[in-house]
Design a binder for these strands. Structure first.
Lengths: 417, 417
DNA sequence: AGACTTTGTATTCTCGCTGAACTTATGCCC
DNA sequence: GGGCATAAGTTCAGCGAGAATACAAAGTCT
């Protein structure tokens, strides 16, 4: 029978997407996909560039198989060979393998209460481009703001395309409830945005005609960026303190998003049911005690000033400032104790405005954790400041896009062949 | 070279355990293991017994492959063929496949504040045996109580072995912090047990010489039992209300245990930081508002009476009883709102003493959820009473053991060949 | 210079799934 | 009742991917 597209043409069997999918059938191709990912991940995450033999030893594959897989990854420009190090060891010198740099990149975008930003990352983790605009976007006009974001993205995209770098996608970080399945932004109280299909608005701009765009929660993305900093720590909670307070829960190296993608809304966790009214309609939310506005106002400062002003006041020994920070720390400690009792993590990373407040804030947090976490006597919960610098959510967004590529290099290898 | 066990014998390469493990190399054998599990799971979880052809259609495997895999499962006594239904359809009649019954079983054990129990389940989910002893085990002597549990287990084991049923393992449910990695019980405040290697004590009894034993948290196991009741609902939180209050968080069909296995300790979540002192040392824990003791005492009843007494009082319209239940419901609602804000689940199942209190309790819970969950306007959180009957944790324990077998039938197939 | 050591590649083998043909068992229709 | 259509289950050649083994390559050590 000729393979023409006749009416009786057979339906294509839905191929098992990944070996990891427990509900799909596995076939030989799944094995290859799995191992391709395994090898790529190992090369990208290794502390020092490994040779083919190192990869084989670490993964349990044979050197022969690794050679074949490496060849594929190499041809797809996902990895590169480095110069052999001057060998101080007997035997044939190894060829170190590393993630390719400057071949493939992803774009991270962000809208926050006091800045907009765009950045680009390649597989080696290098920041190829960055644009940040400071401003005040509380109760801003979404279409106008998003147009500016699109302009930033366009700048970055043209810059990279001029260098011949291929772009795999973009991800926008927002401080609010983003529906991870159906796309629309539900509620970003501090931007004043509500029930808005941000993805659709942004995709109307020409830049995104060929560039796939995702939208995700700011804290979740920042958590991902922090996770990539220290890969040893696989399970932790990242708390993003800004005007609002969000948390990204990382379980075993994977950001936990929940049923709809709305996990980690610690800012609207109850600290005291009889406490003050919050913008969300409930009473006694953490945000009313430890959000930036509350911190600044309690210290007698304007909430629109940068956090550095509060830090300076604390450094001067200003009573009101110190009291404000300690109160916030207690509330934060209560909320985090609840989180730890529920989710059982043993590492907490405080980012955003909390990082510079570390010397004045953390003791109160730790004290509450010690008192209120049921398992505290058996496993101490460590609290530390975030290591990622500026724009963690932007970086995390780009990483999220790259991560998809890394998790499924087979499609890219086939496409670029 | 002769394959003798000389000193230069090659090390056995660590074989990739499962295809699901993202850090292990996949090989052809992994494909078979994966598909074997896939087929077995499909047969066990199907609403009506499927034929080989049905399984093939559902999984995406070919009928040829399914035939081979079914043959293996059949020989290992994991599944059985049913009589063909009187066919009302054209074509060769299908042979329905179902989980084997009465061939392989697992034991569930439980120690709780007011009863001990043991039960046995086979792959078809049938309860082959059950023993329950009522009593009061608050501040009991662990060794004495565990000896009684071992005796219960021994009774069940001999009964089953007389019937020629093979036992794959046992799992003990405890209301407290169980270290899922290193084994010891850390803290079961309501039993008064603390820092006790329950597993080791129990394993000293002869029954467990050949029977692998695990120890796990009561609420987590009860959640698993509830999950098996309605497989459609894959993500929910089960709340086990007894003297203490525990929660089992089920994400995508899998119980989330956390870093150490201590997740879901909702009973020691803070409802009001200035509230009354709790046995755990902190203040204002949920348990002080919605635990059985608090409920009974507030209603003017003795905490050692069964919950039915409170239900009857409420039915009579007793003011104190109704007030007590409503107060508990509010506190529970606050704690659950926090949980939902953090973990983003949209189903809550209330079990234990809360199930019979449904008509008087749930409204208060739902009201708090509606007011305090940030995402409430976009996705309602449903609250319902548990469906599993008596001893959910026991049943869940047995299921947990069987689940391991189902997740890795390859080992059993090879062993029973 | 030659033995030794380690890396990376080539070749053959095995294993498990696919696809297509084949067998079996039933209902339907004349 | 006998063919025909239909669906379930089985058999078998083929293929793709990793394992095992042997071998080539590129160095160090003596």
């Amino acid at each position: 029978m000729s393979p023409g597209p006749g009416p009786t043409r057979k339906l294509v069997r839905p191929r098992g997407r990944r070996v990891g999918d427990p509900d799909a059938a596995a076939r030989q191709g799944s094995v290859r996909e799995h191992n391709l990912t395994l090898v790529l991940r190992h090369i990208i995450e290794a502390a020092v560039p490994p040779s083919r033999a190192d990869v084989a030893a670490a993964t349990g594959l044979t050197r022969a198989t690794v050679s074949v897989l490496v060849e594929r990854l190499f041809r797809a420009e996902l990895i590169r060979e480095l110069e052999p190090t001057t060998p101080q060891r007997v035997g044939r010198p190894a060829i170190p393998l590393a993630p390719a740099s400057g071949t493939i990149a992803a774009i991270g975008l962000e809208v926050n209460v006091d800045y907009l930003g765009a950045c680009a990352l390649d597989l080696s983790g290098e920041r190829l481009a960055e644009r940040v605009i400071a401003g005040h976007f509380r109760n801003s006009d979404p279409r106008e703001v998003l147009a500016r974001v699109a302009a930033l993205a366009a700048e970055v995209v043209t810059q990279l395309q001029d260098q011949g770098i291929r772009l795999v996608g973009a991800c926008l970080a927002l401080p609010g409830l983003v529906d991870s399945r159906r796309g629309p932004l539900r509620n970003a109280p501090n931007l004043g945005w509500r029930d808005l299909d941000v993805g659709a608005i942004l995709r109307a701009h020409a830049v995104f005609d060929t560039l796939p765009l995702r939208v995700a929660n700011e804290a979740n993305l920042a958590a991902r960026a922090e996770a990539s900093f220290d890969r040893q720590i696989k399970t932790f909670v990242y708390v993003s303190g800004e005007t609002g307070i969000g948390a990204g829960i990382v379980l075993n190296g994977e950001v936990y998003r929940g049923r709809h993608g709305w996990s980690g809304e610690i800012g609207h966790t109850v600290v005291d049911p009889r406490g003050p009214l919050c913008s969300c309609g409930a009473t006694g939310c953490l945000e009313r005690y430890a959000g930036k506005d509350a911190l600044m106002l309690e210290a007698g400062l304007s909430p629109d000033q940068p956090i550095g002003v509060l830090v300076e006041a604390a450094e001067r020994g200003d009573e009101r400032a110190l009291r404000s920070i300690t109160d916030a720390g207690q509330a934060l400690g209560v909320a985090l104790a609840n989180l730890v009792n529920l989710v059982d993590v043993d590492q907490i990373v405080l980012g955003g405005i909390y990082a510079p407040l570390e010397p004045y804030l953390f003791d109160a947090v730790v004290a509450q954790l010690r008192a209120r976490v049921l398992s505290a006597p058996w496993a101490t919960v460590t609290v530390r400041a975030a290591k990622v610098g500026a724009g963690p959510a932007m970086v995390g967004g780009a990483q999220a896009v790259l991560r998809r590529l890394i998790a499924d290099p087979a499609s890219w290898v086939a496409g670029g062949d």
